[in-house]
């Protein structure tokens, strides 16, 4: 069974909300980023999302763009990312999702990538610029390798399209809370409850919400109608300021609060 499924099943049985933590691999160096990843896992991240640095991250805001740039300056490649996953997997059972852009995976070769990723212990792929219509080829190889293709649903996604996306979704559904790029926001959108109620009726999969969450208070609010919260840019900023552990603990505590 895929670790994503076992983790969400466990969270559900415990009545807890999950924390999906995102960090860009190689920011600012492979060594530091591995230390940060271990810190985040030890502090209570339930699902680890690892950003593969790309030269043209068109769906990312300034924080993740800058992290991606620093990682590329450090010379980090997809091969380095996979090797790092292998080292993390030796010590942790936490599910790992690679977050990246299609060109990197395409150049590596979809089939080879899926085999290599599964071999080192990756559990899923989230390819931000590979919408349902273009995902058929990679999904075929992912299914063969036992990897979950994580589907995204946006506030702009109409019901018929949502149904299409959900018809073939696996692991969890990633609901994008804002019409915008990744990055911290002042407040969580007020109409999110309505969207999530609709989404909940349309799928049995766990729902993770993301884009714009940066504090325990926001995470708690965002998690009200979801099963997990994704925190990315805020973790990257915290890691740079040496307060990654405290932020993960703050969010974890807020999510666990009755």
């Amino acid at each position: 069974m895929n670790r994503i499924d076992t983790t969400f099943a466990k969270l559900k049985s415990e009545g807890r909300k999950g924390l999906v933590g995102f960090l860009t691999v190689g920011d600012p160096s492979l060594e530091q980023s591995e230390r940060d990843i271990r810190t985040a896992l030890d502090a209570g991240v339930d699902v680890l999302e690892l950003g593969v640095p790309f030269s043209d991250p068109t769906a990312d805001g300034p924080t993740i763009q800058a992290a991606s740039f620093r990682a590329l300056q450090a010379g980090v490649t997809l091969n380095d990312v996979l090797a790092l996953v292998g080292r993390i997997r030796a010590d942790y059972e936490t599910p790992i999702v690679l977050f990246g852009y299609a060109n990197l995976l395409f150049r590596y070769g979809y089939e080879l990538l899926c085999a290599d990723a599964a071999a080192v212990g990756v559990d899923g792929l989230l390819v931000v610029d590979l919408p349902f219509e273009e995902a058929g080829e990679i999904r075929q190889h992912m299914d063969g390798a036992g990897l979950h293709f994580i589907s995204l649903v946006a506030p702009t996604t109409p019901p018929a399209r949502q149904k299409l996306i959900l018809s073939d979704a696996k692991g969890f559904v990633y609901y994008i809370m804002v019409t915008g790029v990744t990055g911290a926001r002042a407040a969580v959108a007020s109409d999110i409850g309505d969207h999530l109620t609709e989404l909940r009726e349309a799928t049995d999969l766990p729902i993770a919400v993301g884009f714009g969450v940066s504090s325990g208070v926001q995470a708690k609010a965002a998690a009200e109608h979801a099963d997990a919260v994704v925190v990315g840019s805020a973790l990257i900023s915290a890691a740079r300021d040496g307060r990654l552990e405290s932020l993960v603990c703050e969010i974890r505590a807020a999510l666990d609060k009755e």
Binding site: T58, E134, T157, P158, R161, I165, I176, T179
Partner: peptide, 12 residues
Amino acid sequence: GGRYVAETLMPV
């Protein structure tokens, strides 16, 4: 060709 964009842009 095709459409390789974030889901948010697909509907538009």
